[in-house]
Write a protein that binds this DNA or RNA. Sequence first.
DNA 1: TTTATTGTGTAGCCAAGGCTACACTTTGAC
DNA 2: GTCAAAGTGTAGCCTTGGCTACACAATAAA
Lengths: 145, 145
Amino acid sequence: MAKLPAKLPAEGTQARRFGRVRTAQSTALLEDYAELIADLLASEGEARPTDIARRLGVSHATAIKAISRLKRAGLATARPYRGVFLTEKGHELADRVRVRHRLVVDVLRALGVPSEAAEADAEGIEHYVSETTLKAFAQFLKSRS
Amino acid sequence: MAKLPAKLPAEGTQARRFGRVRTAQSTALLEDYAELIADLLASEGEARPTDIARRLGVSHATAIKAISRLKRAGLATARPYRGVFLTEKGHELADRVRVRHRLVVDVLRALGVPSEAAEADAEGIEHYVSETTLKAFAQFLKSRS
DNA sequence: TTTATTGTGTAGCCAAGGCTACACTTTGAC
DNA sequence: GTCAAAGTGTAGCCTTGGCTACACAATAAA
């Protein structure tokens, strides 16, 4: 974990926001892995490192490293040669991520973004949408249906 | 720059999207720096590493390292102890980023997101909005005014 | 049951983006 | 003109998230 900067007192709005983005970036990847693992567990009954790697387009070594970060974060468990599983915390995260993803995609589509682009962009956008914004999105969708 | 993965042929949609997100992430920071430098040049007449660092809430060493990446990318120039300047390419990038940022903020606000959250979230979101989505956003704003 | 294929895990390398520590310029106040 | 303060730059360290290469385990085929 990166050490906290020497000066914590809010240096200004911009600095605070920039910091938030950095934090989000570091969790974005764990979120993606958690979601994919939940997905594989649901559809295949198991989540193996190689499958995960293939789905994400990375090498299996990269996937395995990410999995150990998940384990360290208390999101997953894995026994050698026996696949990966999510902890309760991991499942909760995956659920939250899935809901958020759908919401972002739906809003984009409601704004007139073609499905393909909506899905693709949501993949990046979703990690930076705050609770506040999420609520507004839900509200917006409800109001126009 | 990270080397290209061995297998380029699209492994599948998910892998392609994941890859796009990774690419966007690597340019996000350069975009933020370029925008800030343009901002400082416009408002202060000069962009000094320490100011940049303060505004972003990072150490000056970090800012200086980022500036040399900007130089390597052909986006900025700098002479020792003489501040940072943007190349034409850098200015173009900064302009594009600024326009995109405004558009994202405006759309979020139009969706009912409070200004503060809209500004903060846009900081993260903007880097992942494709041209297609941007066009849809512009269209949406125009249609409802 | 041996063996080939596939999967897993580890080690080691790289670049990015953080940090602190230290040395060197510049600049501004006497 | 000197000197202290502020700014700049470099070096070195860390973690993350990529990669390849190689060794080991499991499984399927002969």
